[in-house]
Design a protein around this nucleic acid. Structure first.
Lengths: 152, 152
DNA sequence: TTTCAATCATCAGTACCACTGACGATCAGA
DNA sequence: TCTGATCGTCAGTGGTACTGATGATTGAAA
């Protein structure tokens, strides 16, 4: 058997045994394909994430949107600027707290969102097709469980 | 039942139903914890990835290392500069092809790598502890399968 | 009421990384 | 020898994270 104690050295892992590598590259590959599918709509996967949160209606301010997406609050300004200039969404000061901007989709934006979300969903399903029907939901469940367990 | 056809609109998904969101945030959370555990060693998870590939011995050049990690070749220059200046690795021109740099760990670097890899492994195991013993390997398998299926 | 700390959106500045395009050195083949 | 390709390097650009500051606004204490 192998010798115990502090001199025990781990075997050199292959790069695709490393969870961080797998998560990073899976994310990048999916994002690349999603961005390609979203290009005809003139938005990125980053934009779609913002539209999704806004369409969900739970966000009460720009910072809520940024917080959910893990985007910096200062980056969110420019991100929403572009989408607002494109007529996809509108900002208006909150009536409850006029420091806040309430962000809402325009009719055009809502239609764009549904079409883009559909395209993104197709990419996801194709991306996970190697896992089978259960595999994809099990993968989501595992990722959710890890995030929930490590939420600080 | 729901109406079919092009007017069928998808329900607005919660952000944590979106695979891209889950992959991104799982990656970021793991990287954050890994970087914290690696800080005493004076390296980042990015550095450890490079050391791992180099320790594996399969890489024949800087660009091989960059290619495996998905790091840009021009970024690899500065990354290795730092590690070389720290005495962790050494570059020497290949004897077979003197355009290439062969990158090798120093004795110091090898010891550092084993200790850092051990710390990173502990973080990974803790990160996946919510999944159980089989869950973690199933997660790796699922991610590997997706990457293999979508390799271009 | 007045004052004051906190919050929100914004902007300026810095840092890091991906990416492009160039360069000299080197290699392989015509 | 000449030519095209490859490798490491460097400069420049663009996008994003992060810090810190600002003005407007809020809520609560004095």
């Amino acid at each position: 058997m192998s010798s115990p104690g502090r001199s025990t050295r781990p075997v050199v892992r292959a790069h695709d045994d490393v969870l961080g590598y797998l998560l990073k590259h899976a994310h990048l590959a999916l994002e690349e394909r999603t961005d390609a599918a979203l290009a005809p709509f003139g938005i990125t996967s980053r934009d779609l994430g913002a539209l999704r949160v806004i369409a969900g209606g739970g966000a009460r301010s720009q910072q809520d949107v940024a917080g959910v997406l893990g985007v910096d609050r200062t980056s969110m300004v420019a991100l929403l600027d572009v989408l607002e200039r494109a007529g996809v969404l509108a900002r208006r000061p909150s009536e409850q707290d006029r420091r806040r901007n309430v962000v809402e989709l325009t009719d055009t934006g809502r239609e764009l969102f549904f079409q883009a979300e559909r395209a993104a969903l197709t990419v996801e399903q194709d991306f996970t097709s190697a896992l089978g029907a259960n595999g994809a939901s099990e993968l989501r469940g595992a990722l959710r469980a890890m995030l929930a367990a490590t939420a600080h």
